[in-house]
Amino acid sequence: MTNVKKGASYLYLGLVFLFLYAPILVLIVLSFNDSMSRTVWGGFTLKWYMNLTSNDNIMGALGTTIRITLSSSILATILGTSAAIGIHYMKKRHAAIMLGATNIPLLNADIVTGISLMLLFTRFTPLGEFSVVLAHIAFSVPYVIFNVLPRLQSLSEACYEAAMDLGATPMYAFYKVVWPEIFPGVLSGFLMALTMSLDDFTITYFTKGAGVNTLSTMLYTQLRKGIQSELYALSTILFLLAFILLLVMNFKKDVRKEAKTK
C-alpha cells in the first residue's frame, strides 16, 4: 500500500516537472539542432550561438540589456534599502500606508504599469534607454524593500542604541551594527531586482521607445519576422541567466544556514 502511495507521488512529481520543464528542454535541444526544421534532429551544432555573436542587432540588445539591468538594479537597491530603513523607523500607521503603496506595483498588471509609465514619461523625457531604466527601478524597488525589511525587523532595536551607548556616532553605528545584519537582505533584494529587470518584457516594451531593444524585446520583434534558430539560442541564454541567478540565491541561503549551525 505504501509502495503504491509512494509510486503515485513520484509519478505526480514527475508529471509536474515534465509540464514545467519540457517546453524549456525542447527549446534548449532545438538551439543545438543542426537543422532548420523543428521536428527533425539534424545533429549537434553550436552555429546558432556563433551566429548570435556575429548578429549586430542581438549583440547591441545584449549590451543594452546589461546596461539597463545593472544600472536599474543598483539604483533600485540603494533606493529600496533607504526606503526600508525609513519605513522601519516610521510610526506604525504611516509604515502600514507605505507598505500598502509598495505592494501596489507588485500586484498591478505589468501591462497597466507599462502603459501608465509610458504616458508619464512621454510628458517629460523622450522614450529611450533612460526611461526604461526609470521604469525598471520603479518595479524593482518593492522587491528590495520586501527583502530588506524583515532583516531590519529581526535586528534588535536596542543594538543600534547599544552601539551609540558604547561611543559610536550614528554613521559608525549603522555601518558596524545595522549594515552587517541587513546585508544579506540587501544582496537578495539586489539579485531579485536583477532577475526581474532581466526577465521583464511588457514594461520594457512600452517604455523603450523606437530603436532601443533589450534581449526580450529583440526576441519579440524577431519572432514577428519568423522563427529563426538563433532565437532558440538567445532564449536559452536568457533562461540560463535567470537560472544561474536563482542558483546563486539558493546557494547563498544554504551558506548562511550552515554558518548559523556552526
Binding site: C159, E161, D165
Partner: peptide, 20 residues
Amino acid sequence: LPANLRPINTVFQKYALFPH
C-alpha cells in the same frame, strides 16, 4: 549631549549584543 559622548554605559534589558 548625545548618548555616544556621555561617560555612561548601559546594560539593556534584552542584552542587545551584536549578533554578527
